[in-house]
Amino acid sequence: MTAIDQSATVAIDAEEVRRVRRERAERIGRWVLPLTIMALAIFAWDRICVWNEIPHYILPRPGVVLQALYNDAALLFSSLLVTLRITFLGLLLAVAGGVGLAVLFAQSKWVEMSFFPFAVVLQVTPIVAIFPLINIYVDNQTTKLLLCAWIVAFFPILSNTTLGLNSADRNLRDLFALNGATRWQELWLLRLPSAMPYFLGGLKIAGGLALIGAVVAEFVAGAAGQSSGLASRIIEAGYRLNAPRLFAALILISATGIVIFLVLSWVSHMMLRRWHESALKQER
C-alpha cells in the first residue's frame, strides 16, 4: 500500500511562508493605506486651518464643511439629482450613439474612413469653446446640457467599440463565412461579443467624462444664470464667499465620480469574469 495520506499537513518552505504573508499584507494594505493617508490629510488640513488662523471663508475646517453638507443637504442633494440626471441621460445617449455609429462604421471601411475624422474633430475641440454655439442654436436648457455631456462622453465608446468590432478573430470570421453566416449573424454572434471588452473599457472612461461634461455644461450655462445643478451651486457659493458650501458641493461631485467609476468597473467585471483575460484571477 502506497496510498498518500491526504490529511497530513503539507510542509511549507520559508519562501512560501513569506509569499503568503506578503499577500495577506497586500490585501489589507490595499484598503487601509489609502484610508489612513486620507484621514491624515484631513487631520493636517484641520491643523493648518487652526494653526494659521485661516478664516473659514478662505479655507473652512473639515468639520465646518461637514456641517455645511448636513445643513444644506436639501439644497445640495436636489442639485446633485439634477446633475446626475444629465450625467446618466448623457451617458445613455453616448452609449447609444457610440455603439450605433461603431456598428455603422463596421459595416463598411468606406463609411468609417469618411466619418471617423468628424468624430475626432468633435472630440478634440474643447466643449467650453463649442458651448456658446450650442447656446445660440438650442433653446431647451436640458437639451443643451445633454448635448454637451454627449459630445464629451461618446468618443471613447465610439473609438473603443470600433476597434473591438474590427478585432474579431480572423479564423472565426472564416468559420462564419464557411457556414454561410449572414452579415447580421456575424455582427450579432461574433463581432459584438468580440467588441464587449473594448466597449466596457470605453464605458468606464465615458462614465467619468459624462459627469465632467454635465458639470462643465452647467458651469457655462450657469454663468448665464439658468441652471440648478451642482455646478451652479458652486458658482453661487463662490460669489457669496460661502466656502464651506463650495467644498461640500465639490466633495459631492468627486464622490459621484468615484461611485460611477466603481459601479461601471463592477459591471465590467461581472460581464467578463467568465472568459476575458482582464477579469481573470492571476494563477501562477
Binding site: 479564423n171 472565426l172 464557411l178 457556414n179 454561410g180 461574433l190 472568459w275 476575458h276
Partner: peptide, 16 residues
C-alpha cells in the same frame, strides 16, 4: 461549402 467541416491550427473557439 456547407457540406464540409474545417478544423483550424488553433482551436478557434468563441471564448465567451
Amino acid at each position: 461549402q456547407r457540406d464540409l467541416g474545417f478544423v483550424f491550427q488553433e482551436p478557434t473557439l468563441m471564448p465567451w
